[in-house]
């Protein structure tokens, strides 16, 4: 007899997803990996298998075109951005969950994530006008009669401001949900056992939101690594950081393509980013596993 698990619907309903993902996701991704091995002849990409692109990229990895430095810049900016954004969002989520009366919490949360529904490019534009040399902040300072100028535009600090602003609504939701899922009875029990409020946080709330923090942090790293907009518009392409005036890797891929239209090389650059991200992901999972093992022992 047919059981509810056998049904023509099973294949029929899954097919669109599988086909779309196969054709519009896996195929381009595999194509990208392949194109990385093509080469350019007379301004046309020629299919084949050559290591020209990789040789070209790695021969000048830390000199000349400085792809390597851009990669380091990306990792540095993405890592610090992730820490900043997660800390900001966690503090906000905690404030929402514990300092706002329950019946107002939903409205307060919604209010905090409103900017998510305005265009990212436009938000970056707005930040540009706020942070720029004669922008909103500096013109206000001038009006107040101060000669000091707030100069972060076209540095990686501005890049981070744009990214934190972009990431915050999503991270706030992730972390608010994870803080909310902590059983309030546990907190009362801890208080009753004599914990101060600070101890309740360090011994109970923080350990229990660790998973949410890891999720939020990795999400922030991934988005920051792949983002070129903030680096281009606020970081000015090659923004200053402690590593020097360097573009982020994503910015570099974008400008590399628009200046040379060398798709094979751009594909090779993108492939390198995938490899770096997979490596980072594996390292992250290994770290998390190690941390969990330490906790459980």
């Amino acid at each position: 007899m047919k059981t509810p698990n056998d049904s023509p619907i099973k294949l029929l309903f899954l097919a669109p997803l599988v086909i779309w993902i196969g054709v519009m996701f896996l195929a381009p991704l595999l194509f990208l990996l392949w194109v990385g091995f093509w080469h350019i002849e007379a301004y046309r990409a020629v299919p084949g298998f050559s290591l020209t692109n990789y040789a070209e990229i790695f021969s000048s990895f830390f000199t000349g075109s400085r792809y390597g430095w851009a990669l380091l810049q990306s990792l540095w900016v993405a890592g610090t951005t992730a820490i900043l954004a997660t800390a900001f969002a966690y503090a906000t989520a905690l404030a929402l969950a514990f300092a706002v009366p329950p019946r107002l919490q939903r409205a307060a949360l919604l209010f905090a994530i409103v900017p998510f529904w305005s265009s990212y490019v436009l938000r970056l534009y707005a930040w540009q006008t706020i942070l720029s040399g004669n922008g909103v902040i500096n013109s206000l300072l001038k009006q107040a009669g101060l000669s000091w100028k707030f100069e972060v535009i076209y540095t990686q600090i501005a890049t981070r401001i744009g990214l934190v602003h972009y990431l915050a609504p999503i991270l706030i939701v992730i972390l608010y949900v994870s803080v909310l899922s902590i059983d309030r009875v546990l907190i009362e029990a801890a208080r009753e056992l004599g914990c101060t409020r600070w101890q309740v946080f360090t011994r109970l709330i923080f350990p229990l939101s660790r998973f949410g923090l890891l999720t939020a942090g990795s999400f922030a790293v991934i988005v920051s690594l792949g983002d070129a907009l903030s680096g281009n518009l606020l970081g000015g392409g090659a923004g200053q950081s402690i590593l020097g005036k360097l573009p982020t890797y994503a910015s570099m891929i974008m400008s590399d393509y628009s200046s040379a239209t060398n798709l094979p090389r751009t594909s090779a650059l993108a492939t390198i980013l995938i490899v770096v991200m997979v490596a980072a992901l594996v390292a992250g999972v290994a770290l998390a596993t190690a941390a969990r093992r330490k906790v459980s022992q």
Binding site: A95, P115, R123, T129
Partner: peptide
Amino acid sequence: WLGLAYAFMFLPLVVLILFSLQANRFPGFP
């Protein structure tokens, strides 16, 4: 903190809306 967070989140939106209605060629004060 929540107040500061809201200020940070809304600053670009306020600037956007305000200067869409102001004659300034470059957004700024006065």
